[in-house]
Design a protein around this nucleic acid. Structure first.
Lengths: 246, 246
DNA sequence: CGGGAATCAAGAGCAGTGCTCTCGCTTGCG
DNA sequence: CGCAAGCGAGAGCACTGCTCTTGATTCCCG
């Protein structure tokens, strides 16, 4: 991953950098991003506050480092969950990864807020964050690819007005997937984080009680929306549209 | 709405309170919640910073006031859009309200972040925010109620494990709607704000270009997911599951 | 191997923050 | 009318991010 450090100095540098990030991450988990204080982490590390600036040019740069770490941690959690369920069918793997994302978010709410909550002050995420941010999306798309090769992917409907946009997205991100799938997945991707965000940020308080099963069901419906067909109940998501009785 | 102020003093108080909120809202729109400074608004108003505390006991209380205002503004935008399309069918009204939510969020990103982004530091939303936060949900549910009375609502599927939770939610929030509808709506509600949040917070940058039509299509699929049937294309959202050709 | 250069920690200091407390002035109610 | 309550202003406290200077340490290269 990283090249061998040239000397003891470089080694010490990456060590101190890591230590700073560690206590910063601890403060983040304890108090949230808004209360992350450079002076406080310097105090905890027994160094002068000004010394921190040798390692991070500004507070926002420290934040950026933590953001990248958080993206990677979430991506790794998703990948690990996916690999652990490698034997299961695409639909099962889809929900497993969804649940892994939710679990990570609930376990690290402040880090989740850092990457999927409101962006900090006038801060705009640098380009470095783009690739790591795509890791979980890649996991989902690999599932869709598998299903596409196998027998388990249906084409979601695609209205005419969205055709060109869907083709562009597919060409840019997943040329081997049908544009219908890519368009539907993009929506499902955002919707997944809507569900997770509402739970993490407390919007479901006093609304949803059994959030575990509620989320699992929602994730299954998302799986169906992107064209993954249930192995056991081939069309469970699409019961006939029985009219409700008022 | 509000009682007549007892004297000139009370009148001045509500006026100053409003002025503080106005310049605070301006600062919010300009710089974001994190950079909202009591001293700065005091400076802009030509008063001492300590005087602000006569009107808001703390910075967080000012934030809370702005949060309630934001919820109300979004709720009013949704209600206005709904009323303007009162003649249209439920599905059309659903998408109109979705688009109104999106438009308001894009026009007021910082206020949107305040209510649907990461919660501020150790701040927990006081109970006052609960009813106003439900306003847009009420708009959607009134559409579902109309459709339920009329001919346009289908029962979404509901797995057995979610039955009791769905019945509880329905009993608590919409006893006149089928539990299947309430459960599906709760998910769609969160998913809608996932779509909006991803766009407002820039997660769709370099991913979705034609966000207008992308969102409209996603909103229509949400309408279908909650059981609203399209008036023109009764089953457009459910094309037969044609297997994709790898 | 030794000297010049880069790196590092530390301290003082600046401008800004939320918030408290005290002081007088004004207002309005009993 | 009088007194208590409301109000604005100022000073002050404990913080914050960040800069600059100073002195010590370490590294690299001739």
């Amino acid at each position: 991953m990283s090249n061998t450090p040239r000397g003891a100095r470089a080694r010490a540098r990456i060590e101190v950098t890591g230590a700073i990030k560690d206590v910063a991450r601890a403060q983040l988990a304890a108090e949230g991003a808004a209360k992350l204080s450079l002076r406080a982490v310097a105090r905890e590390l027994g160094m002068a506050s000004s010394a921190i600036y040798r390692y991070f040019p500004s507070r926002d740069d420290l934040l950026t480092a933590l953001i990248i770490d958080a993206y990677n941690a979430l991506g790794e959690a998703a990948e690990a969950a996916h690999d652990a369920a490698a034997d299961a069918g695409p639909t099962r793997r889809w929900t497993v990864v969804c649940e892994a994302v939710r679990a990570w978010a609930l376990a690290h709410p402040h880090e989740y807020a850092l990457i999927y909550g409101s962006p900090v002050p006038g801060y705009t995420a640098p380009v470095d964050t783009v690739p790591v941010a795509a890791r979980v999306a890649h996991v989902f798309m690999s599932i869709l690819r598998d299903a596409h090769r196998g027998p388990g992917l249906a084409k979601p409907p695609l209205p005419a007005e969205l055709r060109t946009e869907a083709h562009r997205m597919a060409a840019d991100f997943a040329p081997d997937l049908p544009p219908e799938t890519v368009a539907a997945f993009t929506a499902a991707w955002a919707e997944l984080f809507g569900l997770v965000g509402f739970e993490v940020f407390g919007q479901f308080n006093r609304v949803v009680d059994d959030r575990e099963t509620f989320f699992r069901h929602a994730a299954e419906r998302l799986a169906h929306a992107v064209g993954l067909v249930f192995p056991s109940l081939p069309s469970a998501g699409e019961a006939p549209l029985t009219r409700t009785e008022p």
